[in-house]
């Protein structure tokens, strides 16, 4: 299906789920394709396409499908936590998202395995190249660590190997900035109030 994309990503997330915070070190240590929050309720899939829509196939299975990375540049598997409502998928900025229902009850939360595949991230500006495409296989499975099956495109490589000068700049910017600068307030005056009690005569 056509999934909205902006800022080089499409996102899979649940109501109230929060995006993971990511430092330059997290990116460097990451897989270069998908970032998931600690709760497993928000995943950001990095795309070559900056904005628009992408063809993403969601292939939902009863059990683990055989691994087939042929024809794909990047394949990464992670665990995610959703009910039968499944994730909303797309661009969360204007909430331009579509539903991806899963085979379980709406109130029934459980762990799922999500195997992300991507191709064509590098060639979006190459005329006549195959368009960027993604495949997400999903099946019910207990929570397990991330597995990186195949990492071969330049888009992912750049993320895992930032330019040293740029890396230093990013580290310096992170060191200079407090984690949460919430020390601003607004105010307005509250005039004193008075009441008078008159004795009955």
């Amino acid at each position: 299906m056509q999934v909205p994309v902006s800022h080089h990503q499409f996102v899979l997330f649940d109501t109230d789920a929060e995006a993971p915070e990511e430092s330059i070190d997290d990116t460097r240590a990451g897989n270069g394709l998908v970032t998931v929050n600690a709760e497993g309720t928000y995943a950001s899939v990095m795309t070559g396409t900056p904005h628009g829509t992408l063809e993403v196939t969601f292939d939902i299975q009863d059990s683990q499908p055989p691994l087939d990375t042929g024809g794909w540049d990047e394949t990464v598997e992670v665990s995610m936590y959703f009910s039968g409502q499944g994730p909303m998928a797309g661009d969360p900025l204007p909430d331009d998202v579509v539903d991806v229902p899963l085979p379980a009850d709406d109130e029934d939360y459980q762990w799922w395995r999500f195997r992300f595949h991507a191709r064509g991230r590098d060639t979006i500006h190459t005329p006549d190249a195959q368009p960027e495409e993604h495949l997400v296989q999903i099946w019910p499975a207990p929570r397990a660590p991330e597995v990186r099956h195949k990492l071969t495109d330049q888009t992912g490589h750049r993320r895992r190997n930032p330019d040293p000068h740029y890396y230093a700049q990013a580290k310096a910017a992170e060191a200079a900035s407090p984690a949460d600068s919430a020390d601003t307030y607004a105010s307005h005056p509250m005039a004193p109030r008075s009441a008078r009690l008159d004795e009955h005569t």
Binding site: A182, T184, M190, A191, L197
Partner: peptide, 30 residues
């Protein structure tokens, strides 16, 4: 960062917290 300040004669607020302190006087009259 912990909480908004409270100060007589002021309403302080952030996006989710407010503290208002009103100085009050009640006068009895005969």
């Amino acid at each position: 960062r912990a909480a908004v300040p409270c100060e007589r004669g002021k309403a302080y607020y952030t996006r989710y917290q407010s503290c208002i302190v009103v100085g009050a006087t009640v006068t009895l009259l005969r």
